[in-house]
Amino acid sequence: MGPTRDAPVLAVEGLGKSFGSVRAVDDLTFSVRPGAVTGFLGPNGAGKTTTLRMLLGLTRPTAGRALVDGLPYAEHERPARVVGAALEASSFHPGRTGLGHLEVFAAQVGASNRRCRELIDFVGLGPAAERRVGGYSMGMRQRLGLATALLADPPAVVLDEPANGLDPEGIRWMRGLLRAFAAEGRTVLISSHVLSEVQHTVDDVVIIAHGRLVHASSLADLGALATPETYVESPAAGALAGLCDDRGWSRRADGAGLVVAGVPAAEIGAAAYAAGIELHQLVSRGVGLEDVFLRLTGGVR
């Protein structure tokens, strides 16, 4: 498979949505480039789904605009041929078969019944194709949603929480698929409320909290925000604390010892040795991306 046309840029410009006095999305600006997987991240209730719904023409923005290849989604001739989207894993009629679900929406994107059959096999639902969706597991619904999004073999794919309900094998499969899409030059946008769930999949991250943008960069640049921490334990706790203060290191108590932020273990060890302070533990603690993510999204609270 390969994209049927040039992959579009997805862009959000000054986008806002208010529900009464609640600003679900507030002055949000970012863009999603082709040829990469972009993670759209934020805690639950941050406004991710509302933003995606505005991008896809389902919800009307109260400010700004959301564009697909420079044009609002709904103004494209056959928009589902440009962007394939799966928004909620529960949006199926329980009495329809998986294959029947695909065939319902195939006509309007120009996909044949044969294509539906191929896709349902492709997402691993072949044996369940003739079964009613009411009996599908969450993971199977997730796969069916993906198949629906891929009906037109679109150059851009938007998936809301695609890892929800998938087993580890399914998550690995999804990851490989999304990486392949990006490698083919497609635009891929996936949302998640857990960074660690997508950090091995995404190239770029867009992080929002409370409807506002808090960070947008490559994953590597996000990693650069992570500062190392060192755990130190000494029987001479007072002397150790004094040493930290002399050097201007930020410290906080942690169990029987201290955590020093932003200072490598070697430097602390050398300083303690020079000052004649006995150490019982000296441990480097890498700060995970998840911590950076939590700090970023918690900071505006």
């Binding site: 023409g57 928009p79 989207a85 928004l87 909620e88 949006s91 329980p94 929406f105």
Partner: peptide, 16 residues
């Protein structure tokens, strides 16, 4: 039924 089972979302994605 489109609203009950939220298939209205997919219906409007393929025909806005």
């Amino acid at each position: 039924t489109e609203f009950r089972y939220q298939t209205i979302t997919q219906s409007l994605l393929v025909e806005p």
